[in-house]
Design a protein around this nucleic acid. Sequence first.
DNA 1: GTCTATAAATAGATAGAC
DNA 2: GTCTATCTATTTATAGAC
Lengths: 213, 213
Amino acid sequence: MAEVPAEGGKRGPYRTGLRTRDQIIAAASAAFAERGYHGSSLRQIAAAIGLSPAAILRHFDSKDDLLTAVLEDWTAQTNAIQGQPRPRGLAFWAGQRTVMEFHTRHLGLLALFIVLAGEATAPDHPANPFMVPRYEAVARGYADALLEAAADGEIAPLTSADALREARHLVAFMDGIEVQALLNPDVDLVAEMEAYLSQTLTRLGGTYVPPQA
Amino acid sequence: MAEVPAEGGKRGPYRTGLRTRDQIIAAASAAFAERGYHGSSLRQIAAAIGLSPAAILRHFDSKDDLLTAVLEDWTAQTNAIQGQPRPRGLAFWAGQRTVMEFHTRHLGLLALFIVLAGEATAPDHPANPFMVPRYEAVARGYADALLEAAADGEIAPLTSADALREARHLVAFMDGIEVQALLNPDVDLVAEMEAYLSQTLTRLGGTYVPPQA
DNA sequence: GTCTATAAATAGATAGAC
DNA sequence: GTCTATCTATTTATAGAC
């Protein structure tokens, strides 16, 4: 859910309404992460926070609408990890180590994304219209950062197509290693990420420098 | 479903029974790939092949039992792509290009795995007991092949831990790039796989040689 | 803003005719 | 081996009291 609301000073029903809404989003996120969208029911989500299913549908028009809110909340939380605007060049790539640290400490949020990404692979899944452009945007961001790195001399020059390929491979690696980490707690997300970044950036003529160090 | 049954010469109900069972598995695989396990109903699966839900439960004890059969069938089909026993050393790694060719031509089978892998991330999902050991076994196989390659002088020497790491990264890359290919048909699984293999095997002191060439 | 009650549809699974 | 019919439980969503 969102951080402590800025309108904390407001009185009346509006304030409690916001809090309940956030509670619902949190409960729905946990449910979707555990059993996916189709496998979760409004009843279970409502019961988890001592509400009736009808109460949820006062805050959200439908189950689909609730899913949209959950995805927006997930985006907000995930974006908050990285600086805004994103770091330039190699610093952005190196910052993915921090993302993995966050995921390690918030496995529920990670499971939410992995489960929904798998489900949303189907063209008629309600999360598909969210996932398709998001994946393209994320890959684009990594590619642009790589091109910046080349322009700044942090890595060797490379074509736009090569940058996009490296970006897709980074996204693929992160998704895939996250699946393995969820299936097997012995898999160390941070260690694997550092190994990948170190190898990849070396190959591209650069160096991996851990963030904040 | 399985190939043409070996007992094709048998008469009577047994033969048709086998065929119906395979039809059910095929319909269930398609449904699970489209909407996941939780999102699919026995009614929909039955209707897709002109059966009643009750007929399915003559062939399978429960919906969970049907899922087990689908996963076993998926394993059989996937294993059939690669040689038995698996090729030794680098040939096994290079053979993953062929796997991607197969996946490109059978996107339904690919979607089935990706969707269920995501769902099965949850510890109490019925496919979790299938996925956890499978991922370990697959990684183990890639790692062993890499150690063979080192022993045969195909790549530079490496430790067992490094081999397992490379194996996990290969699995991660394959899973992740498959998700992207399902979300965006423009992603070329074979081309991305060749790029990954070429880069990785070069880094390990070897060379990527396309299979059957 | 949340509740109870309920609608209308669907779920997995069983019983028994044929 | 498949069907129809049915059971029990659950689904999303709505209506209306408080």
